[in-house]
């Protein structure tokens, strides 16, 4: 491993911790901005007696200054104590734990669709002139203009109502049934991103295919499949990866739309629900989790890019 890559990994790690710290501060301060007294929420909506208020405040450290409250919270998070839901009165970790699996499955399913169809159609459009290219370009133009909820409604109507091929509610039991249930949600989530990734892929490949070092390879008689693999796609991949990384990292949050539309009990729908019911401990931990997933995935992508293109890690030299 070159020092460039190592330095990049360490730098990323530092930036990642800093981002998480700042995110935790912002997320915690959001409490101060939420309307209503958390004590009332903690008391279960009833008007609490002064004694009860004192008990609740002491239990949740609400009688301490805000920054101490924050330290208690962060300390809890770091030691695995994610707090207790105001609404369900169960540990947040259990709430999220029971729902995370299905969201993860949905996101992975969606990623698979995006990579296969997005990158695949991008490659197709870049390599085949004519009808295939046009079809992909038209398809992606339509795709980027389709919001997830619109796609979801269309899919429910066509495949659920008219054709009855796929279930439109719930997540099912067992892995295969899960996948069967998640097909429409995954498609509805992926359409926009397939179109997006397809366009980026095509653009990156076309740009690389016209670069001069590809001319060199052609003169040298390198077989065209190898040219595509080692000189065109390899060189286009950092750009494709960078875009795909951000997209995939964002999917955990965006999945809420599909989960709502298809009645799936994942973390996306948990977040919407908790936010609506002012279940602060759940909202805080979920927000922190989403931020963490986003930055970690992006950091991983950056490291992969640094392996492909070590020079990108160095400050640009003037030759």
């Amino acid at each position: 491993m070159t020092t460039g890559v190592l330095r990049r990994v360490l730098g990323k790690l530092g930036a990642l911790l800093l981002t998480l710290f700042l995110a935790s501060v912002v997320i915690y301060s959001a409490i101060l901005l939420t309307p209503g007294d958390p004590v009332v929420a903690l008391a279960g909506g009833v008007r609490p007696t002064p004694e009860l208020i004192a008990v609740i405040k002491a239990e949740h450290h609400l009688d301490q200054p805000v920054w101490i409250q924050y330290l208690y919270w962060v300390g809890g998070v770091l030691t695995g104590d994610f707090g207790t839901s105001f609404v369900y009165k169960t540990p947040v970790v259990d709430l999220i734990g029971s729902r995370f699996g299905i969201t993860l499955l949905l996101v992975l399913y969606t990623v698979l669709l995006i990579v296969v169809f997005g990158v695949g159609s991008g490659i197709l459009a870049a390599r085949r002139r004519g009808a295939a290219e046009k079809a992909v370009l038209v398809g992606t133009s339509v795709g980027v203009a389709m919001p997830t909820f619109v796609v979801a409604i269309l899919l429910i109507f066509i495949f659920g109502r008219l054709l009855g091929w796929f279930p439109v509610f719930g997540a099912g039991e067992g892995l295969l049934d899960n996948l069967y249930h998640l097909t429409l949600p995954a498609i509805s989530l992926s359409v926009l991103y397939i179109a997006y990734v397809s366009r980026i892929t095509r653009g990156a490949i076309v740009a690389q295919a016209h670069s001069e070092h590809v001319d060199t390879a052609r003169v040298r008689g390198i077989p065209s499949e190898r040219i595509f693999r080692n000189h065109v796609f390899l060189n286009a991949s950092p750009q494709i990866l960078a875009i795909s990384g951000t997209t995939i990292a964002g999917l955990f949050a965006v999945s809420a739309i599909a989960e709502q539309a298809f009645g799936i009990g994942g973390i996306g729908s948990l977040l919407t629900e908790a936010a609506a019911r002012k279940d602060l401990p759940v909202v805080q931990i979920l927000s922190l989790l989403l931020v963490a997933l986003f930055v970690v995935l992006n950091a991983v992508v950056d490291v992969v890019i640094a392996f492909i293109d070590p020079d990108s890690a160095r400050s640009r030299r003037t030759a």
């Binding site: 670069s211 001069e212 070092h213 060199t216 003169v219 390899l234 060189n235 293109d309 020079d311 030759a319």
Partner: peptide, 15 residues
């Protein structure tokens, strides 16, 4: 064999 004007552009920077 062919040699071009700008060697930097004609070599794959990643390999």
């Amino acid at each position: 064999g062919m040699v071009f004007q700008t060697p930097r552009a004609h070599l794959n920077p990643l390999r």
